[in-house]
Design a protein around this nucleic acid. Structure first.
Lengths: 212, 212
DNA sequence: TGTACATCAGTGAACGCGCGTTCACTGATGTAC
DNA sequence: TGTACATCAGTGAACGCGCGTTCACTGATGTAC
């Protein structure tokens, strides 16, 4: 890591990162089944034994990949919130922020279906490392904070707040999962932009807000 | 099949059914990864080559298993509807039927997590047989018909009806998926009965109905 | 600036494993006469 | 009721495969003096 990111000296210098990128590409191409450590190493241009120096085992690699996924999910949600805030810094703002988070959530899922499925209950189970839990929680707290601003209360300690959070999360998650799974042809066929209004409507239902 | 269901003559007589039951047990014990044709055959007490006489290949077995799952999902939804109808054949009935269907949906998922995940986008992808699509549609139509009764319109040909259907489906599906995935400790720790009120509330939100 | 040495991150061969599938086979079942 | 025969549903051996992981190794990198 002494010289820049372009460095291709061998000892590779950034193999861990390269492996994670290769792993994600493999995941996209082959799906969760079909994914393997060996083909990931091959894609990274390295012998199949090399990853052992960076990841204890296959599960560790998948956990790291999932953690990165949660980081990106959080970033996408926040980016949508920022864009929405810029658009209309107006009256309905708090609800608009939750809607934006929801749109980001679904957008991430549709843009990264294989990763999304890995993150939520996919392969590499067992003892999740703390790093992964922490990344997942960061995404969750974007949602919780948004709902708290709408309700004007702590969203996790009151029954009503908790129900709001669960409703929004469930409806976003369900929509994302159904869209990814191709269970609803209409969803899968639409470009994402056409789905924004539907998602916004659904989040508002979950919060018991009037139609947008 | 000449004599009763108890028959254990060899030629087994009901190997296809026995394999499906063994496969489900394997799925529950080992999860989707770890599932294999060979261990399924072994569990059914038969050589690992025997299944080939009943299922073209592994994918065919999984598709059949998923189709059975959809049949049972449909049955559970209808059973909840029947129970709800018996309880209170009253005013709010149409909405109550959708709520009951939603409760049945989630209950099935929680009682059969591995099967539920197989049914929705799990392993054995590729060309789904018509039998599977038909079984899935039967479940879907329970939901659609229920929503139509609430809205008093065809739920699939109007935009508003379509949004109602999607909102209910998404929120049920998301709740089920999150509960199964153990993402929400609170959910996973509760007995199902304690979750009924929460699920009912969520379905009512999806339909834009007043609090139950 | 040069040399000796420890450490680190690769290599490639080898391991044992369980998998799905194919194959020739066998023996029981059901049918035609 | 008995016999010949086709069909069907099993068996067990064998195939080739890709997998995760281990191992002794090698050669480059970085450090101490």
């Amino acid at each position: 890591m002494k010289d820049g990111a372009e460095s291709r000296r061998y000892h590779h210098g950034a193999l861990r990162e390269a492996l994670l990128e290769a792993a994600e590409a493999e995941l996209i191409e082959k799906g969760e089944d079909g994914f393997s450590l060996r083909s990931t190493a091959k894609r990274a241009g390295v012998s199949h034994a090399a990853p052992a120096h960076h990841f204890r085992d296959l599960a560790a690699l998948l956990h790291a990949l999932a953690a990165r996924g949660f980081d990106r999910l959080t970033a996408v949600m926040k980016a949508e919130q920022a864009a929405a805030g810029a658009d209309a810094a107006g009256t309905d703002d708090a609800a608009g922020q939750v809607v934006a988070a929801g749109i980001g959530y679904v957008r991430f899922a549709i843009d990264n279906p294989a990763l999304f499925q890995l993150m939520f209950g996919g392969r590499g189970g067992g003892d999740k490392p703390a790093e992964l839990a922490k990344a997942a929680e960061a995404g969750f707290s974007v949602l919780v904070n948004g709902v708290a601003r709408v309700g004007g209360r702590d969203a996790l300690t009151t029954e009503a707040g908790w129900r709001d959070v669960m409703a929004v999360w469930a409806i976003m998650h369900g929509y994302a999962h159904l869209a990814i799974g191709g269970k609803v042809a209409w969803l899968s066929d639409q470009p994402f932009e056409a789905q924004r209004a539907v998602i916004a409507d659904q989040v508002r239902r979950a919060l018991r807000l009037a139609e947008g």
